[in-house]
Amino acid sequence: MAAISREEVAHLARLSRLAVTEEELDTLAGQLDVILQAVAQVGEVTAADIPPTSHSVPLTNVLRDDVVASCLTPQEALSGAPDAAEQRFRVPRILDEDVAS
């Protein structure tokens, strides 16, 4: 049985903001299936009581003093922008009013 369906791959592409083509979807579905079957091996390990590792360095409380540092100039900040206007980054109209916080 396939680990992932073509529909799920299409959904992942949308979530990942990738406008993949139909042919690509076919290829990707097959490839992701092979990869997922292989990586699913992690499930063979008995690890219920094992704490997860998110960081390999044993550091905590790395904090910065609240002191102002130098900023970029607006010219530097906007230097790589594909489009800018009024010293701001210009983007096409936004469809989705998806504001989280």
Binding site: V62, L63, R64, C71, L72, T73, E86
Partner: peptide, 30 residues
């Protein structure tokens, strides 16, 4: 380390970190 003061001209209180430029990294404010 960008200042938080209110009302600056657009994009004058930004650096690679708060602009999310590739390679930049966060360090938390004590």
């Amino acid at each position: 380390g960008c200042p938080t003061d209110f009302g600056g001209a657009p994009n004058t209180r930004v650096c690679p970190v708060c602009l999310g430029l590739p390679g930049s990294l966060p360090v938390a404010n004590r």
